[in-house]
Design a protein around this nucleic acid. Structure first.
Length: 939
RNA sequence: GCGGGUGUGGUGAAAUUGGUAGACACGCUAGAUUUAGGAUCUAGUGCUUCACGGCGUGGGGGUUCGAGUCCCUUCACCCGCACCA
């Protein structure tokens, strides 16, 4: 075998790795552990494109590198296999999502294996596997059976809460709960019926049912979380989203807001991602102020970050959805108010967002009383106030807030200026200046922002008309989905109240249904199941017809959202086959947390926030050893596609070459990129064949060719710009693909895929192969290497090691190229050089490295080789011959030269005659040296 | 509007953190070799000039012996959030 036959080599070693379980991690090892995790993929029907493996390649390089460094490396992979596309496909075709998913997974696995990843497939997880979601359901039960103690700042078992209720009612309790819980004492608690008690407890549980306003997507027939909505339309499919009141399961993530914020300080995640999470949590400090309503028992609570402007209040605004609105609206205003409420409810989320400029609202006829001055303040409603933030009500201070100002101007409400020496004739004064002082503000007169804040907060608290309050934008996460293909929520209903299954009754397996659509009555798809009732005596799922409401009860019809299964999967990998626990104590103790997590930044406010929440909860309850699960996280950038566009004259079948468009009006249409060559020329005949709509097309060419337009955008099947990794593996091999993707640029950066450049990496690998095959046959000598060869090797060892640690893989590839070029020029085929080079290269080009390693006469896989031992052996020896650190240019300060051996300094000085001349026996304070000359000598 | 980030050849990008800017690769130009293979090798390739030289890291200004890197200012683009009281 002479040439570099990557096909054969790659097949051979992939087979070897699989047969020898080369990448199995042990849960019982004396080696230090290292856990490298990829965000597991959703197995879509389109398969992987070249963008998907970018992160997997990077993490695989790091995992292989760490193995060489002597770590016991856990590098698993699995599938986030519940999700909407499989279900949409099921609706269209009737094919069970389980089958679609299995097919897709098989395809993914084939593609992943082909790229030579060192995953420990022994630990594979699939979120849709009952043996997996059994534990997702189990975690749900743990959340159900817990509440949040704000004093201890941790989740505690619900029994502890019951004990508190039995002793004190809900007095002296500091627990996260629903806003509207009523106070009761121990005696009252005892007098409640069991159902009533359960209803109360439901207000405290970490997962609870509530009637909430949700984002409803009629097209998808389900509710969506805030992070599943982009610009007012659904993330999947881009459908309109409206508001709707529904009974839903929610997760009390709000209880963890502060800890989710604090935890960010202790993890090495990208600053931009942390900032996104901070914004999403949206902490703001201010006050809750109580405004009594005139001639009414209700108290209107508002949250404000500017209590210092309390004397500038001239009206109140409530969110139209607020229940209180109905109670306080006067009879004269009722019809106007109702009309307005109806009007706002009909607007979709997108309309509302698109149209933030227009001002609308209506007067309720009611008045609030200013808590400090007793002035009458008109109460309005307006849709610029959001029901979901704060209390859904604001005290409007038009002189200090631009929105209040605009509203006041629009409806001719008086504006009172409380800022001395400011002009508010055209806009509100919104600065928090230390030089501007308040006026017409009673005891706050003459005070600046900071002082006034302090004074007024103390005053409010002393007089019981308000208190300090921290408010978070983060809302509790809606947990119900009206979908089929998700984890069933392990709950049945008795007297309208949810009852959880017991732990030993799990998993509650997803039932079969005939129809994946909602029922005609509008119930979720599980309503179509004929066997979906819980027999509490025999502890099993039975036919719906046997529901008797005595011993057999209906089961929950909603399923869990996509983020449920992905919020804890990284712990399952640690102990994937444990049938007694979601992760064994010993395994969790050994692996503890993920050391390196790689994935896209698009999960910043979804998966990466929810999983931190569950982590903290499971930590609180003593199931996990740490409360942040990923020490370091890297966002790999997306690899973008380069779409090809042709331009049609509207209403015709005439297409214009790009250069002919000029000022004409045209419709751009995407065409398959495989029909276009590197010079942007379209194969018109192939296009006619491609889709029937082009069969009759006329192409107006320029200079005999038809040019397409180009656009760089996300790779997607629907944009016809997908490049398949299988093609690349076929043509160039997996090692080339791996190295090329790394060579493309920094890992975090988004970049367009460009197949043209791949030949450089390909010829590098061929060159490397030739280095070991100088005369078309494998050959290495045991001669002593020259100084130049050693220099080359050790520069590379140093640079590559350093760069891998910095995740700068693109520069590693360059370093390899330089090294091989130099060694080739030296005609180096010395074992002492090539052997360590092979090890160094193996994380990047594992197949070739394995082959060379075995050609070098070694048994077994190169994976097991301890690289530092090799590197050090050669490094130490060569340092004697050559200063390893002198690699181009170098700066010496006095301090630095102390660390260098005299021999090294000597070697550098000896390098160059000019240097010797310039020094002339002086002791330099600072010498700047480049190869061949000294630039500067100081001192 | 708020927050984060990025601007370097024809292209992707380097620059050991203040020390020869453009490593490495693509592309391009010549040549060699081979007789068609997406092969290999050699030389050249920032701009400008015949040349000596001059100019060059989005623009302008500053600090420094020395700035892609530090400071001020300005422009452009990308990402996230957005009526958050």
């Amino acid at each position: 075998m002479a040439g570099y036959n990557f096909q054969e080599i790659e097949k051979k070693w992939q087979k070897y790795w699989a047969e020898n379980h080369s990448f199995r991690a042990s849960n019982d090892s004396d080696l230090p552990k290292y856990y490298v995790l990829d965000m597991f993929p959703y197995p879509s029907g389109a398969g992987l494109h070249v963008g998907h493996p970018l992160g997997y390649i990077a993490s695989d390089i790091y995992a292989r590198y760490k193995r060489h460094k002597g770590f016991n490396v856990l590098h698993p992979q699995g599938y986030d296999s519940f999700g909407l596309p499989a279900e949409q496909y099921a609706i269209q075709t009737g094919q069970h999502p389980e089958r679609t998913t299995a097919t897709n997974i098989a395809r993914y696995r084939e593609q992943l294996d082909r790229m030579g990843f060192s995953f420990d497939w022994h630990r594979e997880v699939r979120t849709s596997d009952p043996q997996y979601y059994r534990w997702t359901q189990w975690i749900f039960l743990q959340l159900f059976n817990a509440y949040y103690d704000k004093k201890l700042d941790q989740a505690r078992p619900i029994d502890a809460l019951v004990a508190h209720f039995e002793a004190h009612g809900n007095h002296n309790l500091s627990a996260a709960c629903a806003d509207d819980v009523l106070a009761f004492d121990a005696q009252q608690w005892a007098s409640f019926s069991s159902d009533e008690q359960q209803r109360i407890l439901l207000d405290y549980r970490l997962t609870y049912i509530s009637e909430t306003e949700v984002n409803w997507c009629p097209e998808l027939g389900t509710v969506l979380a805030n992070d599943e909505i982009i610009n007012g339309v659904s993330e999947r499919g881009g459908y309109l989203v409206t508001k709707k009141k529904m009974k839903q399961w929610s997760m009390r993530i709000g209880a963890y807001a502060q800890r989710l914020l604090d935890g960010l300080e202790h993890i090495d995640w990208p600053e931009s991602l942390k900032e996104m999470q901070r914004n999403w949590i949206g902490k703001s400090e201010g006050a809750l102020v109580h405004f009594p309503v005139e001639n009414h028992s209700a108290i209107l609570d508002v949250f404000t970050t500017r209590p210092d402007t309390l004397f500038g209040v001239t009206f109140m605004t409530l969110a139209p959805e607020l229940e209180l609105v109905q109670q306080i609206t006067t009879d004269e205003q009722r019809s106007a108010v109702n009309a307005y409420i109806e009007q706002t409810q009909q607007r979709s989320e997108r309309d509302r967002m698109a149209d933030v400029k227009s001002i609308s609202g209506v007067f309720t006829g009611a008045y609030a009383l200013h808590p400090l001055t007793q002035e009458r303040i008109p109460i309005w409603i307006g849709d610029y106030v959001l029901a979901g933030y704060g209390t859904g009500a604001v005290m409007a201070v038009p002189c200090g807030d631009q929105r209040d100002y605009d509203f006041a101007k629009h409806f001719d409400i008086p504006i009172k200026n409380i800022f001395a020496n400011t002009d508010i004739s055209t806009a509100a004064y919104t600065e928090k200046s230390s030089t501007t002082v308040l006026k017409d503000s009673d005891f706050l007169n003459g005070l600046s922002y900071t002082d006034a804040m302090e004074r007024v907060l103390n005053h409010l608290e002393e007089h019981g008309c308000g208190k300090r309050r921290i408010n978070y934008r983060l809302r509790d996460a809606v947990f119900s989905r009206q979908r089929y293909w998700g984890e069933p929520i392990p709950v049945y209903y008795k007297n309208g109240l949810p009852h959880p299954l017991a732990e030993h009754q799990l998993p509650l397996v997803l039932p079969n249904v005939e129809q994946y659509l909602p029922t005609p009555e509008g119930a979720p798809p599980l309503g179509n199941a004929t066997h979906w009732a819980w027999d509490t005596v025999n502890e099993k799922v039975v036919a719906n017809s046997s529901i008797d409401h005595q011993t057999v009860f209906p089961l929950e019809l909603n399923t869990m959202p996509g983020w449920a299964g992905s919020s804890w999967y990284f712990y399952r990998y640690m102990d994937a086959h444990n049938s007694d626990e979601f992760v064994g104590k010993k395994a969790a103790q050994y692996w503890r947390e993920v050391d390196l997590y790689l994935g896209g930044s698009e999960h910043a406010t979804g998966h990466l926030l929810y999983s931190r929440f569950w982590q903290k909860f499971l930590f609180d309850r003593g199931f996990l050893p740490v409360d942040e699960y990923a020490k370091k996280l890297i966002n790999q950038g997306m690899i973008l596609g380069t779409s090809a566009l042709i331009y049609r004259k509207p209403g015709t079948q005439i297409y214009l070459s790009k250069g002919l468009i000029n000022e004409q009006e045209v419709e751009p249409i995407r065409v398959n990129i495989s029909l276009v060559n590197a010079a942007d020329e379209l194969d018109c005949e192939a296009l006619r064949q491609w889709q029937p709509q082009f069969t009759e097309a006329t192409f107006e060419k320029e200079q005999g060719v038809f040019k397409v337009g180009r656009e760089v955008e996300k790779m997607s099947k629907s944009k016809y710009n997908v490049v398949n990794p299988d093609q690349i593996c076929e043509q160039y091999g997996a090692d080339t693909l791996r190295m090329y993707e790394m060579f493309l640029g920094p890992i975090e950066q988004a970049k367009p895929w460009n197949t043209a450049g791949i030949s450089g990496v390909y010829s590098f690998l061929k060159k490397t192969w030739r280095l070991f095959h100088p005369n078309n046959a494998f050959e290495v000598t045991d001669d002593a290497p020259t100084a130049a060869m050693l220099k080359s090797l050790h520069q590379t060892i140093k640079k590559v090691t350093h760069d891998i640690e910095q995740f700068s893989f693109n520069t590693c590839v360059s370093a390899f190229m330089i090294c091989v070029n130099e060694l080739s020029a030296e005609k180096c085929h010395h074992r002492a050089i090539l052997e360590p080079l092979t090890i160094l290269l193996s994380p990047f080009s594992p197949h070739m490295a394995e082959e060379l390693w075995s050609l070098l006469g070694h048994q077994g896989s190169i994976t097991q080789v301890n690289f530092p031992e090799y590197a050090e052996k050669y490094l130490v020896e060569s340092t004697k011959n050559y200063p390893v650190s002198f690699n181009g240019k170098m700066r010496f300060t006095r301090e630095l030269s102390l660390e260098l051996s005299p021999k090294e300094i000597e070697a550098i000085i000896l390098e160059d005659e000019q240097t010797q001349q310039q020094l002339q026996g002086r002791t330099p304070k600072k010498v700047i040296v480049v190869p061949g000359k000294i630039i500067n000598i100081v001192g």
